[in-house]
Design a protein around this nucleic acid. Structure first.
Length: 227
DNA sequence: TCTCCTCAGTTCTACTGTCT
DNA sequence: AGACAGTAGAACTGAGGAGA
């Protein structure tokens, strides 16, 4: 069901101005909220469902928003609750395996990246790196993934993340540190062997430098003998 | 420039749950 | 019951910014 269709006609009257406001809110927060949902359900189609449900829930209860926190925080909390609820229901089990096949081929929301149309090789390399990070993130335990995505990818502060996930700030720090550690390990496993080829310095370059150094040493030898 | 404050990263310790 | 792993929380450290 299209999101826009779901907004009006619930409870009391929704004015055209409300619809327009909802549209702006969704356009503003879509990407961020989708990532949060996606980080929890680990599935693109489920994340879309979660987002739709969360929006509907939010807009039909908009009058309950007291303004104590930023609207983005309020919406994020609803999305998290919705996503966790979906996980609990366990409805996604079967679809998960099917969707895993498609997940990394059909990107619905992409990580922000700099399009470098002049350099397709660079663009491809960036895409591959992001794929690795996305996969490593998906493999994090739920509790670490939520903190990692909220804190690192969405850029919330420790306090905001703690508030959003109902944790103590210290816990956020600990989990973030461990999530980074796990991501690092994961990436090292995948690209570690390749790093041996980074900054290649062998063969002719190595030989050339060796020869150059030896040449300079041999030139200096007569005057720089002892000290 | 120095001091103070805040925030983030890291480490360590105690606690809890699970497995054998 | 004991060993082990995972987790939370406290404490420490460092970086960076603001103000005197």
């Amino acid at each position: 069901m299209p999101i826009a269709d779901a907004v009006p006609t619930r409870k009391r009257e929704t004015s055209p101005q409300d619809i327009e406001a909802f549209r702006v809110i969704m356009q503003t927060h879509n990407r961020k909220l989708y990532r949060i949902a996606r980080s929890i359900v680990q599935n693109n189609s489920d994340a879309e469902d979660v987002l739709q449900e969360a929006y509907v829930r939010a807009f039909t209860h908009f009058s309950e928003f007291r303004g104590d926190s930023a609207i983005s925080t309020w919406l994020s909390r609803i999305v998290i609750n919705e996503a966790l609820g979906r996980l609990r229901q366990g409805r996604r089990r079967k679809r998960l395996t099917e969707d895993m096949m498609q997940t990394h081929q059909a990107e619905i929301i992409a990580f922000p990246r700099n399009a470098d149309t002049d350099n397709p090789e660079k663009t491809m390399a960036q895409r591959q790196i992001l794929d690795l990070v996305e996969k490593a993130t998906d493999q994090l335990p739920d509790i670490y993934r939520a903190v990692f995505v909220t804190r690192v990818i969405e850029g919330l502060s420790n306090e905001e993340t703690a508030d959003l996930l109902a944790l103590r700030p210290e816990t956020v720090r600990t989990r973030l540190f461990r999530a980074r550690h796990l991501i690092k390990e994961q990436l090292e496993r995948q690209i570690g062997p390749l790093l041996l080829d980074a900054f290649p310095f062998a063969g002719k370059r190595c030989e050339r430098l060796t020869e150059a150094v030896l040449a300079r040493i041999s030139q200096q030898e007569p005057e720089g003998g002892d000290r």
